[in-house]
């Protein structure tokens, strides 16, 4: 299964709707990082509301992806971590330390725009056609 990456101006939105196999998770990572580079995205929001299990492997893929995206120059936010996922990850000794999180996609987009603006990038992230 290929995860759709939606473009909104210079932002990218990804919603992971299904439990991924390890290979699909790696494919997602590579697709997203390449897409960020291709369009020189200013920000990326990854919505994981639908994931009811995030094991240490998936947590690492998400962390690494967030770090890679930032290394390229984009802001990143993870949206919708489920409460039981948060409890399990912390009990297990894992964390999504590589990324900032928000409750939902709405807040994620707001945060991205704020951060992009505070970086001194004056282009409004959602309005640009080019």
């Amino acid at each position: 299964m290929k995860i759709p990456i939606l473009r909104l101006g210079r932002l990218l939105l990804v919603s992971i709707q299904e439990d991924l196999t390890d290979n699909e998770a790696m494919q997602f990572q590579s697709d997203l990082v390449n897409k960020v580079a291709e369009i020189e995205a200013l920000g990326v929001a990854v919505d994981i509301t639908a994931l009811d299990v995030v094991d240490s492997y998936m947590a690492r893929v998400i962390n690494d992806t967030a770090s890679m995206v930032r290394l390229l120059g984009a802001e990143v936010v993870i949206c919708g971590v489920q409460p039981f996922v948060a409890m399990t990850l912390i009990e297990m000794g894992r964390d999504l330390i590589g990324a900032d999180c928000t409750f939902n996609l709405d807040q994620g987009l707001e945060q991205l725009k704020t951060r992009i603006a505070s970086r001194g990038d004056i282009r409004f992230a959602g309005d640009e056609d080019e």
């Binding site: 009811d52 299990v53 094991d55 489920q82 039981f84 399990t88 009990e91 297990m92």
Partner: peptide
């Protein structure tokens, strides 16, 4: 409860991996 469901599913995921 969902907390237990998630813990067990995650533990099984770790062990089978």
């Amino acid at each position: 409860g969902r907390a237990y469901q998630t813990r067990l599913a995650t533990a099984v995921s770790e062990l089978t991996r």
